[in-house]
Design a protein around this nucleic acid. Structure first.
Lengths: 234, 234
DNA sequence: TGTTTTTAGTGTATTATTGACACAATTTAA
DNA sequence: TTAAATTGTGTCAATAATACACTAAAAACA
């Protein structure tokens, strides 16, 4: 069956931007390719869409292969379609944006793909247009973390408000007032006090919170103001 | 040259959501297909990406063919990739979101494509997953028009604040307080008073404004608050 | 044991923004 | 001239954001 005889069939790739947070820096999961083409160079984790596979399933497959995780936070980001973006053959790439809790991933799977967590500002040169994809993903992260509660996806199940603040300071590379930040976050009603305290701390132990899963789901698309207005200046 | 022998080549379609505003209702430019497949049914304007064509050029080509316009506001919206979304052959569709000044389009081109402007809530059943695409586009319009100055793309070069308000009321289907809306819009500094008055009015003539093009360009990505907080409720 | 240092948690005064509403001005038609 | 419709501007109270001060807890160390 061929309803569209004159149209071009094109390779459809999937590339994944995977962000993590180690408590101090935002990190990217990148692979050093031990396969052709471009063997030995750094790139995003990717693959090709199969002809009988849903696009979202393709992204989930690639993410699972690299991280061993099935319940990752994923959004479709943008499709990159410059005619010459892959010198090997015309390929359109659908880029996905993923946030993971950095300690949850399967380190065996990561190792077998020759992948590493790399701090954002220490990232190497990447193949093709992958650097543009990363820039687009950083932009997306900054934009969306200010409006929607996606930051939590980068933190452990239980987290403290100071941890959350360090995350936001890493995303926006600005200092944030501790007291105003705390008030703003607590006023969303998203945080549930677990009654536990953080033991990692060297001094006063901070309260551990978890997400109010119900409220998170139903209010995810409300606009919040997680960042000071100065971030969104005119 | 074939670097990826085992990967699938897939049709890549481009579909365009084209919004207009007639002063009263938000409208969609839809085509009644006079070609196979699905002849006689309604659909979005679309086509296939050529193998040597940039994705954005493909979208511009399709938009130009239908509207005769070259300087349309276009964003890439989302790529739809369910395996069975086109029963004819596996096709991935990249959907573009376009806003046009409804009086600017070439009505000959529109007629020759068998296209019509159709009010949003009077739209017919569409082929394939085009209804989902439209819903996604409406969501995008509502979300982005509240934060960024994209509404102007739907109005003539020179417009009045009451016209602008009617547009926002059509997008969100809520009444907006005239005085607060005016204050909010003027405070953005985006509007330049042309000194002219609108003649269409039956009573008091409203001031015609135009966009401050410089400020529009440089401040486009700032966050604004074009809608009352109640729209973005917790 | 108590003092110092560091980090966490809560409070408050000032300023800016928003929302609700009143009133004056302009234009056409009766 | 008057009435009706619409536009433009102003005010006040409530709310939210910002800048800052103080108290509490925990560990290190004299």
């Amino acid at each position: 069956m061929n309803n569209y005889p004159q149209a071009s069939r094109i390779l459809v790739a999937i590339d994944c931007i995977i962000f993590g947070f180690d408590g101090k820096d935002i990190k990217l999961l990148l692979i050093k390719r031990n396969f052709e083409p471009e063997k030995g160079k750094w790139s995003l984790m990717g693959g090709f869409l199969n002809v009988d596979e849903d696009l979202t399933d393709g992204a989930a497959r690639i993410l699972y292969n690299l991280t061993g995780l099935e319940d990752i936070y994923v959004e479709q980001l943008e499709t990159f379609g410059k005619a010459n973006r892959d010198p090997g053959e015309r390929t359109v790439s659908v880029v996905f944006f993923a946030l993971i809790k950095i300690d949850d991933h399967d380190s065996e799977a990561v190792k077998s793909h020759n992948a590493s967590w790399i701090t954002l500002d220490a990232r190497p040169k990447l193949i093709f247009d992958h650097e543009q994809m990363v820039l687009r993903a950083i932009e997306h992260l900054k934009y969306n973390a200010a409006l929607h509660p996606i930051g939590f996806e980068l933190l452990p199940e239980r987290f403290t408000i100071p941890q959350l603040q360090k995350l936001y300071e890493a995303i926006y590379t600005i200092p944030i007032d501790r007291r105003n930040f705390s008030r703003k976050l607590l006023s969303t009603g998203l945080l549930i006090d677990t009654g536990q305290k953080n033991n990692n701390s060297a001094t006063k132990k901070a309260t551990l919170y978890k997400l109010d899963a119900e409220r998170y789901k139903t209010k995810f698309h409300s606009f919040w103001n997680f960042m000071p207005d100065s971030m969104k200046s005119n």
